[in-house]
């Protein structure tokens, strides 16, 4: 296509149009966050308007919102950090020592992420109620750790399998302890895996709704529950409120896709397909 610059330009234009077409609905909500509530529910959609910050300011001043947003950050980052630390140890063992049952455990962990969320949360709910862990912070965060482990383990084991055994051998022969070998020699080799596991697990927890809705309570609620109850409580839905929350909550995700685009493939395929787009 290099022979025809205008053809290439047309091709590029088509690509941009497709990309924008997929983004349109999101853009419409982002615009809605800056409209007055009258413009928002007008039967004739308003395309040109004077942007107002009122919605954003109103949402940010809502005491619940900041608490929930803070909890979104704490729960997603906290649980993923624990999950990755724990998963790295196991992934190292699975990759280097291949104990009996490795494949079976990996398989079971993978299948736990393929069950519909209500089927997962049902027994946990019964268990938490019996143990008194429902609506507690540690119950919530530990659940999300378990939620993040399978993916972290798969992704890290995939990357560790790609690191040559020579690294371990060289480190051990030169007098390094096993812990030194693991953390100082092998760990730096799987940095891309760590980044991918980190980002995508955070995204999954960040987006999660049902577990938080059922198991969480006062003090452990995240934004998605606020969104859902905002629509579900009946009566008139406060759309400018919803639009402003959506805008604030989805912006970091889009930013993450932009910054970490290299890891998108491995992140969205559970670490089973590696490569770059």
């Amino acid at each position: 296509m290099n022979a025809h610059p205008w053809r290439q330009r047309l091709y590029h234009l088509v690509l941009w149009v497709v990309a924008l077409a997929f983004f349109m609905p999101v853009l419409w909500i982002f615009l809605a966050a800056f409209k007055s509530s009258g413009e928002l529910v007008s039967p004739n959609p308003v395309f040109l308007f004077r942007p107002t910050m009122d919605n954003i300011i109103r949402v940010v001043q809502e005491p619940n919102f900041l608490d929930y947003l803070r909890m979104s950050f704490i729960l997603s980052i906290g649980s993923v950090v624990i999950a990755i630390a724990v998963a790295f140890l196991a992934a190292y063992s699975f990759s280097r020592y291949r104990p009996t049952g490795t494949n079976f455990i990996m398989f079971l962990l993978l299948s736990t992420r393929m069950v519909p969320a209500p089927a997962v949360v049902l027994p946990i709910f019964l268990m938490y109620t019996a143990l008194g862990w429902a609506k507690t912070f540690h119950g919530m965060i530990l659940f999300y750790v378990m939620f993040s482990i399978p993916f972290s383990l798969w992704i890290l084991k995939g990357f560790l399998d790609g690191v040559s055994l020579r690294y371990d051998e060289t480190a051990l022969v030169n007098g390094g302890s096993r812990l030194h070998t693991m953390f100082r020699v092998v760990l730096p080799q799987v940095k891309p895996g760590l980044v991918a596991a980190f980002i995508f697990n955070i995204i999954f927890v960040w987006n999660e709704f049902l577990f938080n809705y059922i198991l969480g309570g006062q003090g452990t609620t995240m934004i998605p529950v606020l969104l859902a109850t905002g629509v579900k409580q009946g009566g008139m839905t406060d759309w400018s409120f919803i639009a402003a929350i959506s805008f604030i909550y989805m912006l970091p995700l889009i930013l993450a896709i932009y910054v970490f685009q290299r890891y998108l493939l491995v992140g969205m395929t559970f670490g089973t397909v590696r490569g770059e787009v």
Partner: peptide, 24 residues
Amino acid sequence: LALTLLFTPMVLPPVAVGTFYRLI
């Protein structure tokens, strides 16, 4: 940037998607 816009829908919270499609 184009790929970011293209790939955005799949990383959005399903709750938010369900909500804003009610508006759309």
